[in-house]
Computed example of a mutant assay.
Amino acid sequence: MGEVAQVQMSKVSLTVNGRVMEKYVEPRKLLSDFIREDLALTGTHVGCEHGVCGSCTVLFNGSAIRSCLMFAVQANGSEIKTVEGLVESGEMSTLQEAFIDSHGLQCGFCTPGILMSAYEMLQNDTRPSREEIKEVLSGHLCRCTGYEGIIKAIEKAFDRKK
């Protein structure tokens, strides 16, 4: 019989939500799976695994990306922020509070990815127009809300921004 091929593990070191994390992973492990399985940060959801639904969106060096389209080894040396990283000192972020106040979520499956894209928008000094918010949201599939509450939540978060 043939021999079983051994997979060589690769060391990955990255900063996740402000903490340096080092793990050994298979070279073909997706960043989304690494975040969920190896780091136990299950707020990042996995939906389509094709970069279409947006539920796996995280910030990669400050930019919103689909973590299902990147291998964990490609993120080596990078800074990642997941939805868990929005909570600071045990308090929800202004963005999260705005989503609750504006009924911007229902089942919650798409919410973490939308929050991360909205968070990236909030880092800009210029308040986006309603059309610009819709453009960002076009990369996220939500089957429950109809998006109106989500748009209002993002607008409210900008209004509350100091």
Rank of each mutant, 00 (worst) to 15 (best):
L31F: 00
E37T: 03
S67L: 05
V7S: 11
C56G: 10
H103Q: 14
D38V: 01
D101Q: 15
G85Q: 01
C110N: 03
G104A: 03
L115G: 10
E79D: 11
L115K: 10
E26L: 04
C107L: 07
D33W: 05
S117N: 13
K81S: 11
L115Y: 06
G43N: 08
E84N: 03
C110R: 02
G47L: 01
G54W: 13
C68Y: 07
G113L: 06
E49S: 10
H45L: 03
Q106M: 07
I65N: 03
V16K: 00
V46Q: 10
M9T: 06
L86A: 00
G18A: 06
G113M: 08
V52H: 15
C53L: 06
G90C: 09
K23S: 04
V16D: 00
S13H: 00
C107Y: 08
H103T: 10
S55I: 05
V58Y: 06
N61Q: 12
Q6P: 08
L115S: 09
F34N: 01
M92I: 11
M92A: 12
E79P: 02
L86Q: 04
T94M: 13
R28K: 13
G90P: 08
I100F: 08
C68Q: 08
T111H: 01
K11C: 07
M116I: 05
I100W: 05
N76K: 04
F71K: 07
I35T: 01
I114R: 12
S117H: 09
M92K: 10
S32R: 00
Q96H: 13
L30C: 01
Q74H: 09
F99W: 05
N17Y: 01
S63T: 13
M70P: 00
D101N: 14
I80Q: 01
S63F: 12
H45Y: 04
S10W: 09
E49G: 05
R36T: 03
Q106G: 05
T44R: 02
G54S: 10
H45F: 04
L69I: 01
N76S: 04
K81E: 13
R28E: 12
G113D: 09
H103W: 14
S93F: 14
I114V: 14
A72E: 01
A40G: 11
E79A: 11
S63E: 13
P27W: 08
G54M: 09
P27S: 06
V52Y: 12
P112H: 06
E88I: 13
G90L: 08
C68M: 04
N61D: 15
V83I: 12
G43S: 07
L95V: 04
V46T: 10
L14H: 05
V52N: 12
M21F: 09
T15Q: 10
I65G: 03
P112A: 12
C110Q: 02
A118Y: 02
S10E: 14
G77V: 03
R28H: 15
C48H: 02
Y24E: 15
T44N: 05
A118H: 06
Q74S: 08
L14A: 08
G47K: 12
F109D: 02
E26C: 06
L86F: 03
C68K: 07
E49H: 04
D101A: 14
E97P: 04
T94Y: 12
V46I: 15
E79F: 01
L39V: 13
Q74G: 04
R19W: 00
V25I: 10
Q6A: 15
R28D: 12
V58F: 03
T94S: 15
Y24P: 05
T15R: 09
T15A: 09
L39H: 05
S10L: 11
V46A: 07
E22D: 12
